[in-house]
């Protein structure tokens, strides 16, 4: 395993299990942003060994094919055990060339924490941006959007007391983007994604927490719900990346269900309207397919913050092709 020398051994490490040069460039940028010490190997056993020895390491794994993934999972299972304390999905990042929907072996994985779709055109810039996510996550405690952007951007937080304020909030988000010179089409696209996150927070989060049922929608009048109904919207823009997050105070997100929703593609299968459920079940799939990166930070029974990141581009086609990831950070 190759790595930097000197005092680096005292630092927390980033283990890179990949033979691809662009992954090394990407990981080096992440290390620059985070201060992690890079250890690179092409040997699965060696990477898993390092995972077992280092204190709270971060690991980037080439998950381009099912075979590569299976090798890693089997090795982890044999050496550590899938449910070992040493195996922290929050710190496991799979690097792929595909979208989540094209890699079901990763989307359904027990050890998936972070799904990164490579940007073949700019591993340096994407590594720098992703480094902020890794830096916030390596603290090991729940974090919010402002901690991802840190001093790079001014963050605004808005408390939304009721779903009846959703439309006004969305228009405010759109106005914010237009004022920052985002194109109208991109501003509409981002606003639609924020709409989905707000609906998840207002409708799906209390449902997942078992505090309401489809039959009680849309009247959210239960005592417990009214106490926890507030949603926080955060906006941040550093001139290149726009971040927006929606926080609910239920902490009811389930990773398996989340990934299933994100990975579903309705362009290949028919969408069936379920009259018995209030929600549509397609929101996250649409958000994911229409661009941007997703990060879900969930503290069980406390809160869930769903974050979206979009790169500002001159052309819409570049906006669609931007570097993307789906990240989950769960704290119990």
């Amino acid at each position: 395993m190759s790595g930097n020398k000197g005092n680096e051994s005292l630092k927390k490490s980033l283990i890179l299990l990949s033979e691809r040069p662009e992954d090394k460039v990407f990981a080096e940028q992440v290390c620059k942003s985070t201060g992690l010490h890079l250890k690179t190997t092409a040997e699965t056993e060696e990477a898993v060994q390092a995972l077992s020895q280092d204190a709270h390491p971060v690991i980037f794994v080439d998950g381009s094919t099912e075979k590569l993934y299976t090798n890693f999972e089997e090795s982890v299972g044999k050496t550590l055990g899938i449910f070992s304390e040493k195996v922290q999905p929050n710190a496991i990042h799979f690097l792929t060339d595909d979208e989540v929907s094209q890699a079901p072996f990763l989307a359904q994985s027990q050890i998936l924490g972070n799904f990164v779709t490579r940007d073949p055109e700019d591993s340096i810039a994407s590594g720098r941006h992703y480094g902020r996510i890794v830096k916030a996550a390596t603290k090991g405690t729940p974090f919010d959007l402002s901690e991802v952007f840190q001093k790079d951007a001014k963050t605004q937080a808005i408390e939304i007391e009721s779903v009846t304020h959703k439309q006004k909030t969305l228009e405010a988000v759109k106005a914010y983007l237009l004022a920052a010179n985002w194109t109208p089409r991109t501003a509409n696209r981002i606003t639609s994604s924020v709409d989905e996150l707000l609906m998840n927070a207002f409708y799906d989060a209390p449902l997942a927490a078992g505090l309401t049922s489809d039959a009680t929608y849309p009247s959210l009048n239960l005592n417990e719900i009214s106490k926890r109904a507030n949603v926080t919207l955060r906006l941040a823009f550093d001139g290149v990346y726009f971040g927006v997050s929606v926080t609910d105070f239920y902490g009811s997100l389930d990773k398996g269900r989340l990934m299933k929703h994100i990975a579903k593609e309705f362009s290949k299968s028919e969408y069936k309207v379920k009259a018995s459920s209030f929600n549509a079940g397609i929101g996250l799939s649409i958000v994911h397919q229409t661009g941007g990166s997703l990060l879900f930070m969930s503290q069980t029974n406390v809160k869930t913050e769903a974050m979206l990141f979009f790169k500002k581009t001159d052309k819409f086609k570049d906006f669609k092709r931007q570097f993307r990831f789906v990240s989950t950070q769960f704290y119990f």
């Binding site: 509409n188 606003t191 639609s192 709409d195 989905e196 609906m199 969408y271 309207v273 009259a275 929600n279 549509a280 079940g281 397609i282 929101g283 649409i286």
Partner: peptide, 17 residues
């Protein structure tokens, strides 16, 4: 039509079906 959200898609499909 500027925007349509997932609940809007559901309502759309239900009506036009």
């Amino acid at each position: 039509i500027l925007r349509i959200n997932s609940m809007g898609v559901k309502a759309w499909i239900k009506y036009f079906q």
